[in-house]
Simulated assay, not measured.
Amino acid sequence: MPPGHRGMCVGLFGGSFNPPHDGHRLVAETAMRRLGLTRLWWIVSPGNPLKDHGVLAPIDERLDRVRALASRTRTDVTAFEARFRVRYTADTLAIVRQRRSDLRLVWVMGADSMATFHRWQEWRWIAENVPIAVVDRPNITFAALASPFARRYAFARVPQHEASSLPYRPAPAWTFLFGPRNAMSSTKLRGKMSSPS
């Protein structure tokens, strides 16, 4: 797990990153800039329980690709979930909160993840224990903002012009960040890589 010290504002950006792409990088950079984060952790998951593992590249390969893609400035790339043998975000957050209790944490995700967030294990616990920043993605904005998560926690939405206050707010608190979007997806990339040349 990356180091940290009291008062740091850390964004946690988890995913299988299979493979990582410019859309992921845009989400990470948007969150860093708009939230005023001290650092952002790319947390490379052993495998998303909601996705097909038959097409999952080895974790070392995905780590190398994320390191090549991620900004060198104020970011950490880690796969500590594999060491602790956890696959659910709720378990990951519980471990980070226990071992880095002096950090101000924000969970960062794309709007495509927000649209299906209600299918995540213990999604209400996550929403009520860590602020969440959602970065817009192409063709999913309305579905994300109409999702069970968005409806259930509408009272806790923070206007995007106040996004920099998110790390300092008690959960539940979330914001939706509009801005430039990148249409690339891991599914599209895998399709290109498997297509005959």
Results as ranks from 00 to 15, higher is better:
residue 1 M to V: 12
residue 2 P to S: 01
residue 3 P to L: 11
residue 3 P to W: 03
residue 8 M to R: 08
residue 10 V to G: 07
residue 12 L to E: 06
residue 13 F to W: 09
residue 19 P to K: 12
residue 19 P to V: 11
residue 21 H to A: 06
residue 21 H to N: 13
residue 22 D to E: 15
residue 23 G to I: 08
residue 24 H to C: 07
residue 26 L to Y: 08
residue 31 A to R: 08
residue 32 M to W: 09
residue 34 R to L: 09
residue 36 G to L: 09
residue 39 R to E: 15
residue 40 L to M: 01
residue 41 W to P: 10
residue 42 W to M: 11
residue 45 S to H: 08
residue 45 S to R: 04
residue 54 G to K: 01
residue 56 L to V: 00
residue 57 A to G: 01
residue 64 D to H: 11
residue 64 D to M: 04
residue 66 V to Y: 05
residue 67 R to T: 11
residue 69 L to F: 06
residue 72 R to E: 12
residue 77 V to N: 02
residue 88 Y to G: 06
residue 89 T to R: 04
residue 92 T to Q: 05
residue 98 Q to A: 15
residue 99 R to N: 11
residue 102 D to E: 12
residue 107 W to G: 00
residue 107 W to Q: 03
residue 107 W to K: 01
residue 108 V to W: 08
residue 109 M to P: 04
residue 111 A to F: 04
residue 113 S to F: 07
residue 114 M to D: 10
residue 117 F to T: 04
residue 118 H to Q: 06
residue 118 H to Y: 07
residue 121 Q to I: 02
residue 124 R to D: 00
residue 126 I to S: 01
residue 127 A to K: 00
residue 136 D to S: 15
residue 136 D to I: 07
residue 139 N to E: 15
residue 140 I to M: 09
residue 141 T to K: 10
residue 141 T to V: 10
residue 143 A to L: 08
residue 144 A to T: 07
residue 147 S to C: 11
residue 155 F to A: 15
residue 160 Q to K: 05
residue 162 E to K: 15
residue 162 E to I: 03
residue 164 S to D: 05
residue 168 Y to P: 02
residue 170 P to K: 04
residue 170 P to V: 12
residue 174 W to C: 13
residue 174 W to E: 11
residue 177 L to G: 05
residue 178 F to D: 14
residue 180 P to W: 05
residue 182 N to T: 09
residue 184 M to Y: 06
residue 190 R to P: 09
residue 192 K to N: 10
residue 193 M to T: 13
residue 193 M to G: 03
residue 194 S to Q: 14
residue 195 S to G: 07
